[in-house]
Nucleic acid binder design. Structure first.
Length: 297
DNA sequence: GGCCAGGACTCAA
DNA sequence: TTGAGTCATGGC
C-alpha cells in the first residue's frame, strides 16, 4: 500500500528526456530505470526511502515504495532533483540565436538539469570521476556504494543509499585501494567524508554564501579543483552559471558542434558562454547531452 | 602497446 | 603564477 503523490509538470519539461538522461549507457547504481519509470533510494526526513517516478497524463506520479517520510520532504526532493521550479523558456530563446545550437532546444526539448541534491555524494562522485574514463568511474562508484551504502530491498530488488560521511570517514586508504581506488582518490574521499561528518562543511552552510566564496570554500578542500567545484555548484548547489573548465566532455562537444580546438582557451570558452549569462549551467548540460546522441537511436 | 580518460597536487623557477 | 612532472588504472 504505497503512498503516492502527483506533481504538475512545468512548461518545457519532458519526463522522457529526463528519464533517458538518467539511463545512459553507464552502469548507474544510485537509481534504476525502466522504459517509463525511475526508481531511487534517498534519505528523506532521516528515513531511508525509495521513490518511483513516472508520468501519468500531464502529471508526474511519485510512488513511495519504501519508507514514510513527509509529503513535503518527498515533493521538495523531486522538485529539486528534476529542477521543476526553473522556467527554461529564456534559455531556449537564447539557443535560437545561434544557428549551431538551436537544435539543442528541439532535439532535447524538456531536458532538465538532473541534480545531485546530496553535496557529499556530488563531491565524492567528482573525485571518483577525476581523470579516469566514465565506465571505470561508474564501476568504482558501484563498488563503494554496494560495500558501504545502506541497502534497501523492495520487491526483491536492491536499492542503495550513498554511503554516509560517517561511514566513509572511518575507512582506511587501504580499504579503498582494495576496490581499485588510487591512493589519491582514497585520501580525497576520506578527507571529504571527515569534513562532512564533523560538520566542517555542509550544503546549508555554503548556500548562505556568495558564489565567489562558495568557490573558495570548495577549492580549499583537498582534492577539489576548479572542475569539481564548478560541477557541484551546478549539480548540487544549482547555481545557474557554472562552467566546469577543463572538462573533456565539454571540449569534445564544442569540438563537434563549433569546431573548437580539442582544448580551447579559457578566453574562447568565456566568449562562447557569454551570451548565455544565467544559463551557462544549462548550456553545459545540453552540450554533455549531445555526447550521447548516437546511443539514443 | 600507447594514448586517453567528465583532474588535482606538488614543486621549481 | 605558470609550467612540467606525478599519480593511477581501466578502456579502447
Amino acid at each position: 500500500m504505497a503512498d503516492y503523490f502527483y506533481l504538475s509538470q512545468p512548461p518545457q519539461f519532458s519526463f522522457s528526456e529526463c528519464r533517458w538522461f538518467l539511463d545512459r549507457k553507464y552502469d548507474e547504481c544510485l537509481h534504476q530505470t525502466t522504459a517509463t519509470t525511475v526508481t531511487k533510494a534517498v534519505l528523506l526526513d532521516g528515513q531511508p526511502t525509495v521513490l518511483t517516478i513516472s508520468e501519468k497524463a500531464t502529471q508526474l506520479l511519485v510512488q513511495v515504495v519504501h519508507g514514510q517520510p513527509s509529503e513535503e520532504a518527498i515533493l521538495t526532493f523531486i522538485r529539486e532533483w528534476f529542477d521543476l521550479d526553473t522556467d527554461i523558456f529564456a534559455f531556449y530563446e537564447q539557443l535560437q540565436q545561434d544557428a549551431d545550437l538551436s537544435f539543442l532546444a528541439t532535439d532535447y526539448y524538456g531536458l532538465r538539469l538532473m541534480g545531485i541534491p546530496d553535496l557529499f555524494e556530488a563531491l565524492c562522485w567528482c573525485v571518483i570521476g577525476q581523470q579516469i574514463n566514465l565506465t571505470f568511474a561508474y564501476a568504482l562508484k558501484r563498488r563503494l556504494v554496494e560495500r558501504w551504502g545502506e541497502k534497501l530491498t523492495v520487491e526483491h530488488r536492491a536499492y542503495y543509499l550513498f554511503p554516509s560521511p560517517e561511514r566513509l570517514a572511518a575507512l582506511s586508504v587501504e580499504e579503498l585501494r582494495a576496490l581499485q581506488f588510487s591512493t589519491r582518490k582514497a585520501e580525497y574521499i576520506i578527507g571529504i567524508a571527515q569534513l562532512f561528518s564533523t560538520n566542517s562543511i555542509s550544503k546549508e552552510q555554503l548556500q548562505q554564501l556568495p558564489e565567489a566564496e562558495i568557490f573558495n570554500r570548495l577549492t580549499a578542500i583537498r582534492g577539489v579543483g576548479e572542475w569539481t567545484a564548478q560541477y557541484v555548484m551546478m549539480k548540487s548547489l544549482r547555481l545557474p552559471n557554472s562552467v566546469p573548465y577543463g572538462d573533456v566532455g565539454l571540449y569534445n562537444a564544442l569540438h563537434h558542434i563549433k569546431q573548437f580546438e580539442k582544448r580551447p582557451t579559457r578566453q574562447k570558452l568565456d566568449e562562447f558562454f557569454q551570451p548565455f549569462e544565467g544559463w551557462k549551467s544549462y548550456l553545459t548540460l545540453y552540450l554533455w547531452r549531445t555526447l550521447a546522441q548516437a546511443i539514443k537511436e
